[in-house]
Simulated scan of single mutants.
Amino acid sequence: MSGSAPGAGRLGSVVVAGGGTAGHVSPLLALADCLRRREPDVRITALGTVEGLEARLVPARGYDLEFVPKVPMPRRPSAALLRLPGSMRRAIQAADDAMSAAEARVVVGFGGYVSTPAYLAARRRGIPIVVHEQNARPGLANKVGARFATHVAVTFPGTPLHGATVTGMPLRREIALLDRKARRAEALAHFGLEAEWPTVLVTGGSLGAQRINEAFQASVDTLRVAGVQVLHVTGVGKDFAVSEGVGLAPYVVVPYADRMELAYAAADIVVARSGANTVCELTAVGLPAAYVPLPIGNGEQRLNARTVVGAGGGLLVEDADLTTGWIEGTLVPLLRDAAGLADMATAAASVGEHGGDELLADLVLDAVSGKS
């Protein structure tokens, strides 16, 4: 997609790279929005993949999107590993072509499949690089990018990237400035929920979470009879039907929620994976949560939730322990303890950060102006 000529302000033209899941796309869009607020004529070009959420969300937000071939990093010897050099060269060239067309002055990467070729193309072109790492334990792409970035930003203190600045997570303003109490009636109406019931928001992120989905699907009747209403965001293609229940608490199933700020405003507690973006959004809006870290990967989800759980703003639930028994024996009684939930909400809010977008934008401006 083509865009207008680079803006005349200090930023000029910015390329942002990241995609695949909401964990990468949401902070990318939050930064883009912040840069546009600062300099309305800034040109922003996003690099992403055809398959990722960015293919839909970035153009819908009003930003140009250029596609870069997806290059997964094989973790063991395979045919994909043999194809890696050629695949990476093609991806780097696609990123390079996009940067040339955009006349990019700075590249900001958020990790994920497209960030490694973006970093390597920017290095080849001599363009300043800013890296933002969302998780407490960095991914491979950002480990690579941080080696030659001019500025490195991290969400959580203690993230092991040399010379990093703690900025927190860039959050969309709809979430960073959310007043849950003021928006609750609107939120309940939006999702077809009712004011008299306590509300659980269940989400496994944009891709869904099988364990969470299965446990709650098996507990629909238990929750409705107990007087607990549920907004269940299953992930695309993973939604299921729930029968009508006259006089019972609603159980609303949606595959994806574009208006997550309204989902948060409707909720009294959230059951979710502890991806970095989820943790940061929930603490920013002061929502208690039961965090269920992904049991595979490098363990970053457990680390992401460590601070808020330590502060008393959330519970940590092992994936194997997220069962119908836990829902009935722990979650339902918690929903009946309004004072306890209020204390958890206060604790969650105490570790929330609202200005990550502005702090990261400061680093981008420093990179453009040559400040270290």
Rank of each mutant, 00 (worst) to 15 (best):
E54P: 04
I44M: 02
A104V: 08
G247K: 11
Y291F: 15
G48E: 13
R90D: 13
L282R: 06
I44C: 07
V270I: 13
P27I: 08
F191M: 00
A146D: 05
S26P: 00
L322Y: 12
R36S: 13
I175E: 08
V200Q: 07
V58I: 15
G313P: 08
F148P: 07
A32H: 07
L177I: 00
D41W: 07
Y119A: 01
G112Q: 07
W326P: 06
H24T: 04
E194F: 02
V106M: 06
D179Q: 11
G9N: 06
P288M: 13
R180V: 09
R147E: 14
R56K: 14
T49P: 12
L177R: 15
P160V: 11
R125G: 10
G12S: 10
D221F: 09
V16T: 14
V220A: 14
A17T: 06
S78F: 10
A209G: 09
E358L: 14
D97K: 11
E358Q: 15
G18H: 06
L47Q: 05
I269H: 06
A17W: 04
P288Y: 13
H162T: 12
L248H: 12
G313D: 04
V233Y: 01
E214N: 14
N304W: 00
L365V: 14
S115I: 07
R259W: 05
G7A: 10
L29A: 03
G204S: 13
E244H: 13
V200N: 03
G23P: 13
V285N: 01
G370H: 11
T307L: 14
G20R: 06
E133G: 03
T116L: 15
G329M: 01
G314K: 03
G52A: 04
I327N: 02
T167Q: 04
A249D: 11
P160N: 13
G112M: 01
Y251L: 04
R83C: 08
H151F: 01
G329S: 14
H162V: 12
P74I: 12
T323M: 01
T330G: 00
G245T: 12
Q217P: 02
G237Y: 03
H24Q: 09
D366E: 15
G370I: 10
V285A: 06
G19D: 05
A46D: 01
V230C: 07
A104L: 08
V106C: 13
V308H: 12
T283N: 10
L331P: 05
A32W: 01
E66D: 14
M99I: 09
I269D: 00
N213G: 11
P69M: 10
Y119W: 10
R211P: 02
Q301L: 09
D268W: 04
E51L: 08
L294V: 14
A284S: 12
A305T: 08
R124I: 12
G52D: 08
E174C: 06
C280N: 11
P255L: 10
H132N: 06
G275T: 11
E300Y: 08
A276Q: 11
H151L: 03
L31G: 02
M88Q: 10
R137N: 00
R259E: 15
A32T: 09
M169I: 01
L53I: 13
G109N: 03
L334F: 10
E358W: 05
I327T: 02
A32D: 13
H162D: 14
A289L: 06
A118Y: 00
L335A: 08
T167I: 00
C34N: 11
A5V: 13
V114L: 09
G23V: 03
E214I: 09
K238Q: 15
A102G: 03
G23I: 05
L207I: 04
